[in-house]
């Protein structure tokens, strides 16, 4: 049975904290006092995990659970405070250095020291990887939130004339986006008392059968509200592709440009635009 050199660190807990903090301060990888408590807790949970039998052969064993939870929290909170992933990586790596330093003081036999350092490395390297994963997770959450926000702000309903609203769609129309578009449009028709809605798809890169189906649904819903819906901005290549796909848009008023859609809307409202002499 090998002796548990790593477990011996337990008696040097406060010294370990001191060396670690010193390394962090030298490297500027900490913002000082705010983090001291967390760091102390980290050390204590690390030593506790080792004491409970946590080791490199099973890095997913439950002995490490508390330590992992704390570390995830630290990584996310550091990401929010503006630390780079490199700095957070440094934070953990410095812990390894501090621990390794103490190990060489308490163990003089080379083979045992080597084994203890290897064990320490394997465990801490895994912790380092976890900090990156947590960091990315934090970023992904931000991206997901932004994506949602973008899909909301990029579907404005514009009142172009008394009784006419227009909705320019930019980007891909997926199911969730169509839902937002439709709700916005129907609400605006009610709020403005409009009788004509123009859906401009100049900014939609491709109209496949799913997008077409969404457009058809939106038109039907508009009609149910007693308003007419014109689809504009159908580029020549989109028109040809839609025909080849076999999508039937007869029965829907379609126009090449927003200008001609507006012209049609004026005709429906029996308005004429005349040039002043």
């Amino acid at each position: 049975m090998q002796k548990n050199v790593l477990g011996g660190l337990k008696e040097y807990e406060s010294k370990l904290n001191t060396i670690w903090t010193q390394l962090l301060l030298e490297r500027g990888s900490t913002d000082g006092a705010t983090e001291e408590e967390e760091s102390k807790e980290f050390t204590s949970l690390f030593l506790e995990a080792i004491k409970l039998g946590g080791n490199s052969t099973d890095l997913n064993s439950q002995e490490f659970d508390k330590l992992y939870d704390l570390l995830t929290g630290i990584s996310i909170s550091r990401a929010k405070r503006g630390f780079s992933p490199r700095e957070t990586g440094q934070y953990i790596i410095s812990f390894k250095e501090a621990a390794s330093k103490i190990l060489s003081e308490i163990e003089s036999e080379p083979a045992a020291l080597y084994a203890a350092n290897l064990e320490l490395s394997t465990i801490v390297d895994n912790l380092t990887i976890m900090t990156f994963e947590s960091f990315l997770k934090g970023r992904e959450d931000v991206i997901a939130r932004q994506t949602e926000e973008i899909s909301e702000i990029s579907t404005p309903v514009i009142r172009v004339w008394e009784g006419v609203v227009a909705l320019p769609i930019i980007g891909t129309l997926d199911s969730s986006r169509t839902q937002i578009v439709m709700e916005n449009l129907l609400q605006q028709i009610v709020d403005t008392g409009s009788s004509i809605a123009i859906l401009d798809i100049s900014g939609v890169p491709a109209v496949d059968s799913l997008v077409a189906q969404h457009l058809i649904k939106t038109v039907s819903a508009t009609r149910l509200m007693g308003a007419e819906c014109i689809i504009s901005g159908i580029r020549p290549e989109i028109a040809q592709t839609v025909v080849h796909l076999g999508i039937d848009l007869t029965g829907i008023v379609t126009k090449a440009t927003l200008a001609s859609a507006l012209q049609t809307a004026f005709e429906m409202l029996q308005l004429t635009v005349v040039k002043r002499k």
């Binding site: 890169p205 491709a206 109209v207 496949d208 020549p236 290549e237 989109i238 040809q240 592709t241 796909l245």
Partner: peptide
């Protein structure tokens, strides 16, 4: 552009 659109559709 037409063939690109057909391809991506």
């Amino acid at each position: 552009i037409l063939n690109q659109t057909k391809l991506i559709t």
